[in-house]
């Protein structure tokens, strides 16, 4: 296997919350490198700090200390507008639920990142069709989110995450609200995208997911533990 370049480099990263409840260390001295083409599962019980880690990787939150380099760009000095752009161009999000805007149809939902990128309409439509074909939902283009199944909603979310050709897809409990069979379908979809070269990070507490990942890390009490990919 050829040597891939790192997409994510995290060095001595810590996140400390200081609110009414007092000072609380969510992450302590985390080090993590994710290479291009990886399929990483971040596991951990709730309250372990895995959501905090995902938010930081997703540029939704900033670390208290330490370095986070995304695609060779040090994110520490970026403005909130620059972070928005980086998020738009480099990261595709898939959330557990309420992924789609209920008032917009599937086409409009998937189109959103391209609108924010100011891509012109005809190119947007072409690209949206392409990614919907990739997730097998070409025929639902005019449907509303409340007219399709939970598994289809996740497929649409994945299509939306793909539409900007990001370096990384970040999925937060993508199977959390799905039955086992549909969950397997979604994980297979992610796996096939990964085999096409898309880097994927899945945050989950579902041990089944580990079977699809190339690498797995465990977060516990704000610390990261490496774990070998299980067979």
């Amino acid at each position: 296997m050829k040597q891939s370049k790192p997409i994510i480099e995290i060095n001595n990263l810590a996140k400390c919350y200081d609110d009414d409840a007092g000072v609380y260390d969510a992450l302590k001295k985390v080090n993590l490198t994710v290479l291009e083409g990886d399929f990483l599962a971040i596991m951990g019980p709730s309250g372990s700090g895995k959501s905090t880690l995902m938010n930081i990787i997703g540029l939704l939150d900033r670390p208290t200390s330490g370095k986070f380099i995304l695609n060779g760009v040090d994110t520490e000095t970026l403005s909130s507008k620059q972070l928005s752009k980086l998020r738009r161009d480099k990261i595709g999000f898939v959330f557990q639920n309420f992924n789609l805007l209920p008032r917009l149809n599937i086409m409009q939902n998937v189109e959103l990142p391209l609108i924010y990128k100011k891509i012109k309409s005809s190119d947007r439509k072409r690209k949206v069709r392409e990614v919907l074909r990739q997730v097998g939902l070409e025929d639902k283009i005019k449907s509303r989110p409340n007219r399709i199944s939970g598994g289809q909603v996740q497929r649409v979310a994945i299509a939306r995450a793909l539409v900007n050709s990001p370096s990384l897809i970040l999925a937060d409990e993508p199977t959390g609200n799905l039955d086992t069979k549909t969950g397997i379908e979604i994980m297979n979809l992610l796996k096939s995208l990964n085999s096409q070269g898309v880097t994927i990070i899945v945050v989950t507490h579902n041990p089944e997911v580990v079977h699809y990942a190339k690498n797995t890390v465990l977060v516990r009490d704000g610390l990261l533990h490496k774990k070998q990919a299980s067979a």
Binding site: S80, K81, S84, D89, F95, L100, P113, Y116
Partner: peptide, 16 residues
């Protein structure tokens, strides 16, 4: 609020 969160996550800036 949720809609705003999703929009921001997928790349909307505050001015958007």
């Amino acid at each position: 609020t949720r809609e705003i969160g999703i929009r921001k996550a997928i790349g909307a800036t505050s001015s958007n």
